[in-house]
Design a protein around this nucleic acid. Structure first.
Length: 193
DNA sequence: CACCCGATTATCT
DNA sequence: GATAATCGGGTGT
């Protein structure tokens, strides 16, 4: 399987968010793969997007969003959860990231169940805070390049047909609701809510 | 299934 | 001092 590289991530954030659907997110922990198919994403597109962490300019927290594409941006919310983003933007944009909101579990499911303290397949990775817990993604993974050497990366897989991609407003935000920048695979039971 | 609410802390104002 | 790109448990229908 090919690992997605810089050229894959060097396009507009909204475009890459759609193209990530169907790809495989992999975290290797102690040589074991924990992985799932990406079934739900959201694009956060920088300076004109009031919902993006990058909207008010660069700070130490959001610095990865302004850095090279193909790196991770992991942040801590509500005092409890981590959310995992992939930096992606075309060269004209100063910042941009894609929130991975849900996966369909494929590998390391036993380990996910232990991590989540839950043995129901549907509840392992159907939400941004849940999938980081299932895949053991936390602050240590913030700012990493998504390459084999870092044990965290995305593998290529056949593109999801456009007719199976649903767009809608992003979840959990108060501004920018007019944009349809949440994308998910139609009829997939692992999409959140 | 729908709605409501408390948990818990890094980050920025 | 307020806020937050969420989750899980509770209650009611």
């Amino acid at each position: 399987m090919n690992i997605l590289n810089t050229s894959f991530y060097s396009h507009s954030t909204v475009e890459v968010a759609q193209k990530l659907l169907g790809k495989i997110l992999v975290h290797e922990v102690n040589g074991n793969r924990i992985a799932g198919i990406i079934v739900e994403t959201e694009a956060y597109v920088s300076l004109n997007d009031p919902a993006s962490h990058a909207f008010k300019g660069q700070t130490p927290r959001n610095a990865p969003l302004f850095g090279p594409v193909g790196h991770s941006y992991v942040y801590f919310v509500y005092g409890i959860h981590f959310c995992f983003n992939i930096v992606a933007k075309d060269e004209s944009e100063p910042a941009g990231g894609i929130l991975i909101r849900a996966l369909e579990p494929t590998e390391g499911i036993d380990r996910m169940m232990l991590n989540r303290k839950n043995d129901r397949l549907r509840d392992l990775t159907n939400g941004p805070g849940r999938l980081t817990q299932a895949l053991e993604i936390g602050k240590k993974q913030n700012g990493l390049g998504l390459i084999k050497e870092n044990s965290l990366y995305v593998e290529d897989a056949p593109a999801v047909p456009h007719s199976e991609i649903v767009a809608g407003p992003r979840i959990g935000i108060k501004e920018g609701l007019e944009h349809q920048w949440r994308f998910y695979i139609a009829h997939n039971q692992f999409v959140s809510r």
